[in-house]
């Protein structure tokens, strides 16, 4: 018996990031409004596997998911072995814009989760006129460190095991088992120190709390969705963030945690589709 091919296509692009050549892997499906998807810290684009395969979405959106350098199938730049990886706001902004320009996207909508949910706020503030809008999942202006991230990258603790175990509780208890464990598998496959390096942006460098009021939602609409089981980006933190952005719309999602698009897509979909309809005009 033969299998069948999905409509999702994976390709690489050659780009310059931080002045260095990088080979960035991305997947895409669908036609219509470009929709760039940003994965969470320490994971990769597989988190959007359901969104890429939803015909009600791909009928109206060109869904594009890239693995950030150091993640998934996008290798780190040459020389990576001699330094610790640390994600910065500038590097994050550059990679999203370079991906959009390389694919010649016209005012893409950007959806991002966790660090991606933070990144879309920076994008809306700095580059809102180049975007159709942003959707922040588990989006906050800042998350204060609440555990010692050194545990995520040590010789005497297995990085894949500890990264996955650290985030396991961020998934809602009601999430289907297969989706929970696939979400954790992505974390188990992260490179050494990569999750920790992403958290530098999330918990140290990428604080946008004091610039949130500069976001103009008449130029770049801001939608936010936050799962109630998330104790990393709590509903209260998302609410405080939304309150600081004039015109931002936040919905708290019941029965979902920190990885809504990956942990329980069917439940998440009910919250996402009305927002996507605002962008597709349907």
């Amino acid at each position: 018996m033969s299998g069948h091919l999905e409509a999702v296509i994976g390709r690489y692009m050659q780009v310059q990031l931080g002045g260095q050549p990088c080979r960035v892997y991305f997947e895409e499906a669908g036609q219509g409004v470009p929709l760039i998807c940003l994965h969470t810290a320490g994971s990769d684009g597989r988190q959007y596997r359901h969104l890429l395969r939803d015909p009600d979405i791909t009928a109206h959106f060109r869904v594009i998911v890239f693995d950030m350098p150091w993640h998934g199938k996008s290798s780190p730049p040459a020389g990576w072995q001699d330094s610790d990886y640390q994600l910065t706001t500038a590097a994050y902004m550059e990679m999203v814009l370079v991906v959009a320009d390389t694919l010649a996207l016209d005012r893409p909508v950007v959806i991002g989760c966790s660090i991606g949910g933070r990144a879309v706020l920076h994008l809306a503030r700095l580059h809102g006129d180049r975007l159709g809008g942003v959707i922040g999942l588990q989006s906050s202006g800042m998350v204060e460190p609440y555990y010692d991230t050194q545990w995520l990258h040590r010789g005497d603790v297995h990085g894949g095991e500890v990264c996955a175990a650290q985030v396991s509780g961020l998934i809602a208890p009601s999430a289907p088992s297969a989706e929970r464990w696939e979400t954790l598998w992505h974390y188990m496959q992260g490179g050494p120190g990569v999750f920790r390096g992403d958290l530098y942006f999330y918990k140290v460098e990428g604080d946008i709390r004091h610039q949130l009021a500069e976001i103009d939602t008449t130029v770049c609409p801001v939608f936010m969705l936050t799962g109630e089981y998330d104790y990393s980006c709590t509903p209260a933190e998302s609410q405080a963030t939304a309150d600081a952005i004039n015109g931002a719309e936040l919905t708290i999602m019941s029965g979902l945690g920190h990885f809504p698009m990956s942990e329980d897509f069917q439940r998440f979909r009910a919250y996402l589709m009305p927002i996507l309809a605002r962008f597709s005009g349907r």
């Binding site: 609440y146 555990y147 650290q166 396991s168 509780g169 961020l170 809602a172 208890p173 109630e228 089981y229 998330d230 104790y231 990393s232 709590t234």
Partner: peptide, 16 residues
Amino acid sequence: PAPPPRRHDIMGLLRA
């Protein structure tokens, strides 16, 4: 058996 949101994991209680 079903703790409230964010009270369901030891890391959530650590954060709180």
